[in-house]
């Protein structure tokens, strides 16, 4: 069976252990996690997790079922029609051309967010594929550090 990339959204109770239950499930059953993001859903006792994983159709189906089986899981959304966004922070030396960096970031919904004595930090927020392109494009400005957020997604 063909391996596919899938974005899975999981709504869970925001309680102790819940992240360990989810990540432990992936580790224990040998599923792959490409990215995992988690944050509370405002004004509820719930959290939203977005997991990007890979596997064949049977594995993806098992992942969603096993996630659902966890007692604190409210719902699992596995959909190919997801709006996906990812954010990235990149640190550049102050000597680089700041206007070029600013223009580059602007093309990826971002900009320079912090300027220090020796460095600047820029950000971009876009679809995961475009974030990859952005990172490739930053190479020519000698990035010192790159931190990606992982994917967040919402069903269309």
């Amino acid at each position: 069976m063909e391996t596919v990339r899938r974005v899975i959204s999981v709504v869970v109770l925001n309680e102790a252990q819940v992240l360990a239950r989810v990540s432990g499930l992936f580790a224990g059953r040998g599923y792959n996690i490409e990215t995992l993001t988690v944050a509370p859903i405002p004004e509820t006792d719930l959290s939203h997790m977005t997991i990007v994983t890979r596997g064949n159709q049977r594995v993806i189906e098992q992942i969603t079922k096993q996630l659902h089986k966890l007692i604190p899981t409210l719902k699992v959304i596995e959909h190919s029609e997801m709006v996906e966004k990812e954010m990235v922070l990149v640190k550049f030396p102050i000597e680089e051309k700041l206007s070029d960096i600013q223009a580059l970031c602007a093309a990826y919904n971002g900009g320079i967010v912090n300027v220090g004595e020796n460095m600047v930090i820029a950000m971009a927020a876009d679809e995961p594929v475009r974030i990859k392109h952005f990172i490739t494009a930053t190479k020519r400005y000698n990035p010192i550090e790159i931190v990606r957020s992982g994917v967040v997604a919402m069903e269309r």
Binding site: Q17, A20, G24
Partner: peptide
Amino acid sequence: AVGISRACTKHNYLVH
């Protein structure tokens, strides 16, 4: 205990 038993219980609790 909850860490160790997570994979071999249906559910577990640590009472806080």
